[in-house]
């Protein structure tokens, strides 16, 4: 048995940061106990963190860029997102995945008011504001005001659709493809597609914006 090594492993986290909060220490204590009892291994924890770290908005951007350049893929993505992303070797275990598309007349934005459901497989860990009590409270009742706070002013003619993902489905927004990107490759397009544009609180970047930033 390697209990001591594993215990030391959990402890190293504590030792690195003496300012760690009560709850952080509590979490480390629980982890250490589970490892000591053989219910989970330190390797397994590390492997799970590696998988989490491999999930970034670049994965979602790859999906959206393909939908922009490949109309057939876009159709399949809108019809059955889970099956469509599987074509790109992206496995959505469960729950299911739904893609909703922004158009000239429709703007979609995603929230989970009950907890913080999020398409982690495509976007990685959710930002702090997405999990915040303020975003969860406000975006369902005042989407336009919240979007304005994010710097996105929408015309009155545009229909705003808020998706409150309360159950088994995870939503991702396909932002509108910016004008002036006709010549761009799928890879170049992917660089324009930000995390926030796939949550629906921003537009995709424009090529000019890309150069400025």
């Amino acid at each position: 048995m390697h209990n001591h090594d594993h215990d030391a492993d959990a402890h190293s986290l504590i030792a690195e940061d003496p300012e760690l909060s009560f709850y952080a220490k509590r979490a480390a204590a629980i982890e250490a106990l589970l490892i000591e009892k053989g219910m989970v291994t330190a390797d397994n924890i590390r492997r799970r963190i590696e998988i989490m770290d491999s999930r970034t908005p670049a994965v979602g951007a790859q999906v959206v860029a393909k939908a922009w350049v490949d109309p057939d893929f876009r159709t399949r993505l809108l019809a059955n997102a889970k099956a469509a992303v599987a074509e790109l070797d992206i496995e959505v275990e469960s729950p299911n995945l739904v893609a909703v598309e922004n158009t000239v007349g429709i703007h979609n934005v995603i929230v989970c008011t009950l907890c913080s459901c999020y398409p982690t497989v495509l976007l990685g860990a959710s930002p702090g504001w997405y999990k915040s009590l303020e975003y969860r409270a406000r975006v369902v009742v005042d989407a336009r005001g919240v979007l304005r706070e994010f710097g996105l002013e929408l015309d009155e003619e545009v229909q705003v659709r808020v998706y409150d993902s309360t159950a088994e489905m995870r939503y991702i927004v396909i932002p509108q493809r910016p004008d002036g990107t006709e010549h761009m490759s799928e890879e170049e397009l992917a660089a324009l597609i930000t995390r926030d544009s796939m949550i629906g609180v921003a537009r995709a970047r424009t090529p000019a914006g890309e150069m400025e930033s």
Binding site: A24, N44, I49, M52, W129, E149
Partner: peptide, 20 residues
């Protein structure tokens, strides 16, 4: 109130917690 949009990387203990 106002939504705090500050970006934070997850702390190591938070990642460990999610994994556990």
């Amino acid at each position: 109130g106002f939504i705090d949009k500050t970006e934070h990387d997850l702390a190591m203990w938070e990642k460990n917690l999610m994994a556990v």
